[in-house]
Amino acid sequence: MALSGKVCLVTGASRGIGKGIAIQLGEAGATVYITGRSSSPEAAVLGGSLKETADEITARGGTGIAVICDHAEDEQVKQLFEKIEHDHGRLDVLVNNAFSGISVTTKESRLGHRFWEHEAEPGEFWDMINRVGLRNYYICSAYAAKMMVKAKQGLIVNISSFGAIRYMFNPVFSIGKAAVDKMSAFTAQDLKPHNVACITLYPGAVLTESINRIIAEGSNPTITENFKVAGTPEYSGRAVVNLACDKNKMAKSGRITITADLAREYGFTDVDGRQRPSPRQLNVILGIAGYKWLSSMVPNFIYVPNFLLALQGSNF
């Protein structure tokens, strides 16, 4: 119950990574606000609901509070933070996770469209991916910072992905993720004097409901192969809990962190007791690239240094 008495907010937590993070924060004893839209076609297919997540948070030892919020609507977002401030007068942890671009991104990438070929108008396509994502991350961070700066403490975690440093799906997706990473770095500079940390988290491969469904259907052999050693959504939840409890987390402020690397640093495992491989492990990278025979010969302890990963995203 390391986070007993703490107030947290996880956006987009009815399922997937957001749900896993919210549940683990609850297991650590926190009061956890979770958001999601009241209904969506995707939710009907994949299952899961805000109420179910809130109930599980409470069952794990925390207090789950579900708030219906469409993060595409600025006024609803503002009211969400006003509610938290009214109810508790504080916010200790914000996890920016809500993202509406997955379905359109995967659909368009399957169709093989280039960025000028999408059916939607350019501005509309941008908003479909980055309005509930990059833009909303910034808005939520600004509202959260007002409470955290006042309290002289706090943690903002922005969920991003390796699409930020290499082309993934389409340019708009990768542009948004790269901008999230930069947003963390630059907002961290403003927050540093106030003892508020802002950290980017790359969960890596995660067995979300949609991925599990694809694996069960056998409809995408590539995904089935690449997600053999993927972590559960709660693996990233344990990473966020450990970040929140870290008295030296300001040293990580503005930086990109990876769930599997944090697991080794802090000494936690996934909920099944396993230690997942890091996307920085050379054998993992070789395996994904298709060099299975070479991958099997490389020891697990050989990692690609962070500066080499950073060079992937460098255009100098």
Rank of each mutant, 00 (worst) to 15 (best):
I57L: 02
N315S: 09
A120R: 14
K78F: 03
E209D: 08
I23G: 09
G64L: 05
P279A: 05
I139F: 07
V157M: 09
A144E: 00
L207E: 07
E265S: 12
E27Y: 13
G204T: 09
G176F: 02
G133T: 01
N195L: 07
G64Y: 00
G36Y: 01
M250Q: 11
A310R: 15
D270T: 14
V206T: 14
A30P: 01
N283F: 11
V157W: 04
S314I: 02
V284E: 10
A178R: 08
F316H: 01
N170M: 13
R213C: 04
S278A: 13
F227P: 01
M128K: 09
A30Q: 03
N220K: 15
P221K: 09
K228T: 07
D181N: 10
I285S: 09
V93L: 12
N195V: 03
G176K: 00
K292T: 08
S100V: 10
P299T: 02
L9M: 04
I84K: 00
S38V: 15
I288R: 12
V196I: 03
F125C: 08
Y235Q: 05
C69F: 02
R238Q: 15
F268Y: 13
E85S: 04
G62L: 06
I156N: 00
N283A: 04
M183W: 02
I302N: 06
R37A: 08
G5R: 01
V45N: 11
S314Q: 08
V196E: 00
L282G: 04
G112Y: 07
I258H: 03
K78L: 03
K182D: 07
E82M: 13
I285L: 14
P122W: 06
L111G: 07
Y33N: 02
A54P: 01
Y235N: 09
